[in-house]
């Protein structure tokens, strides 16, 4: 009995096709192949952030979450693994990618395994993934695989990139297979901060036995 995984690719590439998307697709392809060898199946959904750009901007400035953004949240909620891929602009990840992850609820992605990937025109940007993107995904309490992916122009003709893609894909498959997310969510979900209706609308548990709830029902503040 093989497991079935939902893989979600989030791409902040802007051209069609973009090298950013291409890099993410190669990871998704390898994840599918490596999982297949273990008798697991992988369904892949792609979120192209360029199509959400206006809604992301609206959510940032006006709290208004549009329907495409709501769909993206629902997709991520069901993800077993995520590949987040971005171009590098001015020595940093695209604001489109960071803005998207910044408007999500803090607990939407807890314990989900993630491959981080970036593309750039020059190898001088190589540390953007490890130095900048990991912090954001640590804040979201995802578990980022050890191998970061970075592809500058010259990497596309270097077999080393393929090897690194293989490594990252295997790391992701291993984390998904281990059931890490499920264990964390099943056993310590309550120890993370949540808001009512956060986690993409799933976080609806109300602890009636909390100090604040007792205060709400006429008790004393602790």
């Amino acid at each position: 009995m093989g497991q079935n995984f939902q893989l979600v690719v989030v791409s902040a590439g802007t051209s069609d096709p973009s090298s950013t998307r291409l890099l993410a697709d190669r990871v998704a392809g390898r994840v599918t192949a490596l999982a297949g060898k273990r008798g697991q199946t992988v369904g892949t959904t792609v979120i192209e952030l360029r199509e959400l750009a206006t809604e992301i901007a609206n959510a940032l400035v006006s709290n208004h979450v549009g329907p495409k953004l709501q769909n993206a949240v629902a997709t991520l909620r069901h993800a077993d693994g995520i590949v987040a891929s971005t171009p590098v602009y001015k020595a940093g990840a695209s604001g489109l990618l960071t803005s998207f992850f910044q408007v999500l609820d803090n607990d939407l992605l807890i314990a989900k395994p993630v491959v981080l990937a970036a593309t750039a025109g020059t190898a001088r940007h190589a540390l953007v993934v490890d130095d900048q993107m990991r912090g954001l995904f640590a804040y979201l309490r995802t578990v980022v695989v050890p191998t970061s992916l970075f592809a500058s122009t010259e990497d596309w003709q270097d077999n080393g990139l393929t090897k690194r893609i293989d490594r990252a894909a295997l790391e992701l498959v291993a984390l998904m297979t281990s059931g890490f997310e499920k264990t964390v969510r099943d056993e310590s979900w309550g120890s993370y901060q949540h808001e009512y209706g956060s986690a993409g609308g799933t976080e609806l548990t109300i602890d009636l036995d909390s100090d604040l709830m007792r205060l709400a029902a006429g008790g004393a503040a602790s």
Partner: peptide
């Protein structure tokens, strides 16, 4: 979005 406020309204 605050259940505690809804709880207080309900309690009273």
């Amino acid at each position: 979005r605050t259940p505690e406020i809804a709880e207080q309204a309900a309690f009273y």
